[in-house]
Design a protein around this nucleic acid. Structure first.
Lengths: 168, 168
DNA sequence: CAAACCGATTGCAAACTGCTACCGGTTTGC
DNA sequence: GCAAACCGGTAGCAGTTTGCAATCGGTTTG
């Protein structure tokens, strides 16, 4: 079981890596953000990469300790826990947007999986801010201005449309 | 010895993590970028975090395989190899800037180690572009417009000034 | 009332990490 | 000219982490 130990240095990049620098933590946050997966089973089975259940349990515990996610009983489903992103995790949106843009440019991405990164990059900081407000509403219960269209729905619709194209 | 295996998925974020998602690779790139460390020993001994020599050797080999760095004999020093960042690695500047800004905001950073992240964040995309041009000159030999002041020197001077402040 | 679903836990083998010591050759400083 | 420091690594080894498959007892669904 992975625990949180003292940092190797006080460098911002190093500290960020000590929180996020492994192969799974950011993927979990990605799925909670862009896939709107909010409990254990959804993260376990509907993940592109196929995380093992013990690793997922370990990372969820660790990310909770680190204050990146919270977990509460899901009302109306006794054993299900509802996972939520915290404000620090929500502020990773620009990091993920840049990381996705970089990967799309330099690595062998799949077309349908790259469409969200492309839209996010094209939208720029304004779209990221809208998306962060939407995540604050979904995960923290902070209402946002009414009438603004859902960024998440837009990204999901584009992904589904791209997936449905015959020439996969 | 870590090797490069086939990706778990074609998602841009996942692919980026498969390249950079460990505790050391991005730190090595950070030191080459911001600390201008260009050979093995400089990365080994002048690192804040204290990487082990076998891990450093492994990561340098891996990053070379992945096309993030190149290595050539240093003219005038027979055993020294000169390490250089490639264009894809240079394009990580915005990712590192955002990651540093995020860490500075949410994690217990040290003042003198945070000053560069702060300047980089304040400078924004224009400063990042200047810095990337400077890195292209240093690492790829691509000359840039003369007369522009060195971003690297500015960051380093600010760091040294902050380190010299008495109340450490 | 059975089947599927819920969040895990266990056992185990393989891979990776971190540490210390060391290597033979090269360059530096006196 | 010669010793000391420096060069990019490698070897051995213990401890940790990972990945995988199987399983668990309780809950909800059909």
């Amino acid at each position: 079981m992975t625990t949180v130990e003292e940092p190797r240095s006080g460098c911002p990049i190093n500290l960020s890596l000590e929180v996020l620098g492994d192969k799974w933590s950011l993927l979990i946050i990605r799925d909670m953000m862009f896939g709107n997966r909010r409990h254990f089973r959804a993260l376990l089975t509907r993940s592109e990469e196929g995380i093992a259940s013990n690793i997922l349990a370990d990372r969820l515990r660790r990310l909770t300790e680190l204050g990146m996610i919270t977990s509460e009983p899901d009302p109306g489903h006794k054993q299900r826990m509802l996972l939520s992103l915290t404000e620090p995790a929500i502020q990773l949106v620009p990091v993920l947007a840049h990381l996705g843009a970089w990967g799309r440019r330099h690595l062998p991405v799949t077309r349908e999986l790259a469409i969200r990164a492309e839209l996010l990059e094209r939208g720029g900081p304004e779209l990221w801010a809208d998306f962060m407000d939407e995540l604050r509403e979904l995960h923290l219960g902070i209402k946002r201005a009414p009438g603004t269209p859902s960024v998440l729905d837009g990204l999901t619709a584009a992904f589904l449309a791209e997936s449905a194209r015959a020439d996969s």
